[in-house]
Amino acid sequence: MDFPICPTWFLGFDAIFELAFAIVAFTIALFAYKVYRYSGVKQGRLFAASFTFLGIAYVLQSLFNMLTWRNAHEQLCSALRISSVAIFQDIMIYSFFLFLILGLVTLFYVTMKTKRQRLYWLLVALSFATIILSPHPLVASYLVALIFYLWIFLHFVQNYSRKHKRGSLLVMFAFGLFVLSATQFLFGKTGGILYVLAHIFQLGGYVLLLVNFYVMKK
């Protein structure tokens, strides 16, 4: 699989950014689970699962980029007695997309407010079939992610238009930034600066989610 191109000066920063995304995602997942435990709101459990998947995806992505930054892919492969570095890198990238898409499908399913489990598994199957059967898995993965981000964003736009609350506004803007970020990632392969912009947009989105979380807890 191809990898997104990161400018050399941004190497390492991307891994730190992704680790920060993971921390925010896990924090939200933990609180969503607490809401589920206390209130019995079933959406809370699925919501927690979706952010846990996203958190795991970011940890994997951060680890991959950390190894790239430190030039340590080969060292780790020899330590783990893996013969091919390319296979190891493919496994890491595919694992990242596996968790990212699982997280987004789960989040999308939550926003659908449906109890039809078959719909969930259909979305999972269609997403992975699209990625695996595509001649350009990286582009296909980002495209699938972009489509889910767009639909989730529309849910949050509707949610804000119903409530007009500060929290729903912050979440709507956060997911708007995630849509922009996913768009940049889609074309990021052609230019390094887009890769950086995608990370900055994503950071903006997670900062907004964190601000919303802080305001709620205050």
Binding site: K163, K165, F213, M216
Partner: peptide
């Protein structure tokens, strides 16, 4: 905080 969380993400059942 929980109520705000449910409202901001539209998690109401």
């Amino acid at each position: 905080a929980m109520k705000g969380f449910i409202e901001s993400y539209g998690l109401e059942e």
